[in-house]
Design a protein around this nucleic acid. Structure first.
Lengths: 239, 239
DNA sequence: CCCACCGGTGTACGCCGTACACCTTCGGGA
DNA sequence: TCCCGAAGGTGTACGGCGTACACCGGTGGG
């Protein structure tokens, strides 16, 4: 009997299936065994296509980077960086696990290098010295991958019931006693309505704010002919 | 016979042993079983003192935060933040696993809140509005914990032999072909001597550079009476 | 025609976190 | 004085994980 032969696996199909699976169940729920099951294959079959789980994750990150789009030239260098980085951000938002995956990766694959090279190119073309470009890339840090590094968000439990007024009252009392400064911030962020503390911060705004703060600081340094070898390299910033 | 009774465990001893063990073997090598062994106790004994491994890690982070020191008042707000953050940095450098642990944590323990509250207090006392303080804290992101978020470092293998001149030549050729902008940066960073690419970037410098870039940008916003409700909130920054 | 290789299989090992039932010890009311 | 309940430590067991290793059928090139 003509048992239909499955079209054979290959590295690309494995990676794309892994991305899809992670989109569903998160990076914590992604296991070699589960991925194999999803592909209708025995776990060890995967190892014909990726060396180990580390390499699988590297490959998955490469897939996400492949979704970044490269805006054409002709932009102010700051707009060029913004465009790249905000595109990265959109890709990372489509794959919520990507942030954690990127943070945990340490290998720099050719894809990763190519992306860094492209961002660096925008800075250099914009007139930043190689020196300044280097340090600005460091300053941007993970932001070039489209997410801010923070410990502030996330612990939001969607299924939790909204706080009752009494709970709000209690929280405000607790905050004002032990963490008055955090209370001040929360009040400002919610315009005094602590019940709106639920939705949390506007990540998009925070991301752009920090990005622009850094890019505009860099632009000021560029104009000032900044160099890292000066005695107080950052002094140019101080007026 | 008088079998000597071990002094009983308690949460504090467990956490400190965990920190010590992680200092030795890293966070990846830290398992409940191994920690128990180190304490001369059966694995399940730990669960009388911490709910689960998550809570153990939260507690370990709290221990590290406990090592931050709080500089006295009387400093310029920027110096106040710098002092706190650089002290955090020293603590995190003493516990190399802490960075990863902090990044992976999502629960905000009272210790975490207290630290954030203290940093926020410095900003507010320095004359930043609650609004601006909020966004500046976001902009600083993980930097308030004493490390920069980056994908640039780490993959340095100490045991690897230094590259031979031929390898350097090959690397430079590869770089100049495929990643010319990265080459430019590497040349600038090593003053043209690519053999010094080994030691990597000066993390301390990069950290301070980014920190000051952000703090000085924030100071400029403060002076300009920045507010997030303006049409183009960041416009104050432009030239 | 044969054989080497490629992709997939099956089994097994040693880790992991932790649920659950149990057992000792000890301090403090009745 | 007795008892009892809590606190702290134990032992066993389960289900999951990544992956080493031996194997095996099909297929295409010499």
């Amino acid at each position: 009997m003509a048992t239909v032969r499955r079209t054979p696996l290959n590295r690309d199909r494995v990676l794309r299936a892994a991305v899809a699976l992670a989109d569903e169940v998160g990076v914590a729920g992604l296991s070699m065994r589960r991925l194999a099951q999803q592909l209708g294959v025995v776990p060890m079959a995967l190892y014909k296509h990726v060396a180990d789980k580390e390499e699988l994750l590297d490959g998955m990150v490469d897939v996400v980077i492949g979704e970044f789009d490269t805006p054409g030239p002709g932009l102010d260098w700051r707009d060029g960086v913004r465009a790249r980085v905000l595109s990265a951000r959109r890709a990372v938002l489509r794959h919520p696990w990507a942030r954690q995956a990127i943070e945990s990766r340490t290998r720099r694959t050719p894809t990763v290098l190519a992306y860094m090279n492209s961002v660096a190119g925008v800075l250099l073309d914009g007139g930043l010295s190689a020196d300044l470009t280097h340090h600005v890339l460091h300053a941007l840090g993970n932001r070039i991958w489209g997410f801010s590094p923070e410990l502030f968000d996330e612990p939001r439990d969607e299924n939790a019931p909204p706080p009752t007024p009494e709970q709000q009252q209690a929280m405000a009392a607790e905050l004002s006693q032990r963490y008055p400064h955090i209370l001040a911030i929360a009040m400002a962020a919610t315009e005094g309505d602590l019940s709106r503390v639920g939705p949390g911060c506007d990540e998009e705004f925070e991301f752009r704010f920090a990005l622009d703060l850094l890019l505009d600081g860099a632009e000021r340094l560029r104009r000032g002919g900044w160099t890292s070898t000066a005695a107080d390299p950052i002094a140019t910033l101080r007026d």
